[in-house]
Design a binder for these strands. Sequence first.
DNA 1: AATACTATAGGTAGTTATCCCGATATGAGG
DNA 2: CCTCATATCGGGATAACTACCTATAGTATT
Lengths: 204, 204
Amino acid sequence: MNKTTVYVVDDDRAMCESLKWLIESVNMPVKTFSTAHDFLEHYDTNSHGCLVLDMRMPTMSGFELQEELSNSSIKLPIIFITGYGDIPMAVRAMKNGAIDFITKPFNDQELLDSINKAIKKDAERFACDGELNHLQGIINKLTPRELEVAKLIISGNSNKLIAKILQISPKTVEVHRAKVMTKTGMSSLADLVTLFIKVGYKQN
Amino acid sequence: MNKTTVYVVDDDRAMCESLKWLIESVNMPVKTFSTAHDFLEHYDTNSHGCLVLDMRMPTMSGFELQEELSNSSIKLPIIFITGYGDIPMAVRAMKNGAIDFITKPFNDQELLDSINKAIKKDAERFACDGELNHLQGIINKLTPRELEVAKLIISGNSNKLIAKILQISPKTVEVHRAKVMTKTGMSSLADLVTLFIKVGYKQN
DNA sequence: AATACTATAGGTAGTTATCCCGATATGAGG
DNA sequence: CCTCATATCGGGATAACTACCTATAGTATT
């Protein structure tokens, strides 16, 4: 697990330095980038924290980076800062999932508070994702056939029915079922259903 | 089920009339109010649609109404319109769950688009809530004892174990269990677990 | 007082699931 | 060629669940 980092992307070097100094003053690791491309190249998809992002930048604007990130399923919380913003811009940024939009000049504490909130939110997301990946990993251990049987089980079918559906002997279904339970480590049908629902399987 | 209505709250009579005219021009029912209090008095909690809300108003601001509504668990989507807004105000409104924040003078189509999105979103929420209430209603038909047994069942306990936990005969647990299944209309344990998870019961 | 619902409990039979033992066939990899 | 994983199938025993019947006692409603 990587440590949490505050990423700063701003084309203004002085602003980058100022932000770096501010954020490091509260003992948070900071990485600064002067362009969106620079950030995208050096960003480690496994790291977490938050992104402090200038709106107006050459070659790639803050908006474009935000979209790029959301398309790449990178869910790093974004805090926009800008000196030239207007309301439609702020609204659009928020609609696109930014967690804050701060205008320059800003109050230092205001930004730090926002960063803390963002990091907290990202940590929650990370914990949640980790749990999900873990559960998904458990399910991925099943063979295709076992998964097939498992899905039929959690849809409420009995072994006998599953046997008819899959055109195999009920005895084989029993074997698969037992394998599913031992491999997933679930000790009851209820737990198995819960597991599958958690990872997003729906039996509509 | 009530029809969908666009609620307009603005202290400026002329603006109210103008909005009413605009929205009715696309055949959507409108109700206008000149104060937040007026709206709160006449609002039917069962109705749905969306709320077009002026920010700056006497006695109760748009913000205050938004907070009031979120505290009353009224989840009507809110579109703010204002002539005197700034970015922090817009950001705060969006953070509080507004779905749009539009500045006067606004483009008519822009507002209508936003209203349509809001209504769509509310309809989804309504459908979702309706489903949930229905499922909750099913569970509410259970007697306290049956609910107790049901929870133990979906936590993966066997009848025998439940009997020990509740200090009653396994036979009685069987009876409760059968009652739970017939009352909920679920035909398998898997379906029962799914039902309880849908209404938010977790066995952590 | 009669009725209905709830919680309790037993019997008996049948179905289903679980767990132990076994077996065969197939294909991938060393 | 041997091994391992996978998928298939069987017998037999035990445990668990389901479905039908019965019954009693308390509480609430009418």
